[in-house]
């Protein structure tokens, strides 16, 4: 789930505030849940995963902000963790600078409203999906969402799927066995190969 389709250009962001440019490697944390939330980050290049209690809440990509809600909710601490899915380059903006830019620029505020509305909608949709789908349906849906078209395969690990669906790794392994026994998928190292796409879509109740 990408957080939103609404984004800013780097040129526009540079006009709003002075900031520090940082690089993070794949797998490196920008911040942990509970850290003091002194900064907001803008992604110039790369992709950041937002995680709370081992559940992926969403992904943020180039030209998007990370950490804005912790900042805007008047808490002192980040209420989620953010880590890089790939090597990334970001702007690091002090919270006070971000808030001042928001106060001084109505156009910026207007886009921020749109972004927050869209993120709420995507989060609600994901919650609704969790409530309305069984564990098997959720796992199958995430596999289908991450298929690479050319080879009809998916690179998600059981850990990835656990984070994306909220289903335990143990149960995911059981689901894999069940789907493999029905000859719908084949598990090879680091890859899930799709053997029967149509049947998987029926199981995932694709709407």
């Amino acid at each position: 789930m990408n957080y939103t389709n609404k984004s800013f250009s780097l040129g526009y962001v540079n006009t709003l505030f002075l900031s520090e440019r940082i690089e993070v490697k794949e797998g490196e944390f920008l911040f942990h849940e509970g850290d003091l939330n002194n900064f907001v980050f803008f992604i110039i290049e790369g992709r950041i995963k937002v995680v709370k209690k081992k559940i992926v809440i969403g992904f943020t990509k180039e030209n998007e902000f990370v950490g804005i809600t912790s900042c805007l909710c008047e808490n002192d601490h980040y209420y989620f963790s953010a880590l890089a899915c790939e090597d990334s380059i970001l702007l690091k903006i002090h919270k006070a600078v971000f808030k001042k830019a928001l106060s001084d620029n109505p156009e910026f505020g207007k886009i921020m409203i749109e972004i927050l509305c869209e993120r709420i909608k995507l989060t609600d949709n994901k919650t609704k999906s969790f409530m309305n789908h069984t564990s098997t349906e959720r796992v199958v849906n995430e596999i289908l969402n991450h298929i690479t078209n050319e080879r009809l395969s998916c690179q998600l690990t059981p850990e990835d799927l656990s984070e994306l669906t909220g289903v335990s790794k143990k149960l995911i392994q059981s689901i894999f066995k069940e789907l493999a026994a029905k000859k719908l998928i084949k598990i090879i190292p680091h890859t899930i190969e799709i053997l029967d796409l149509n049947q998987l879509e029926i199981i995932g109740k694709i709407v």
């Binding site: 559940i55 805007l72 928001l102 409203i113 709420i120």
Partner: peptide, 20 residues
């Protein structure tokens, strides 16, 4: 914006609650 931020935080917490 502040109200929406609180709503987003609640929505994300609800997601976690339902999942876990």
């Amino acid at each position: 914006i502040q109200l929406l931020s609180k709503d987003l935080k609640s929505a994300e917490q609800h997601l976690i609650d339902v999942a876990q």
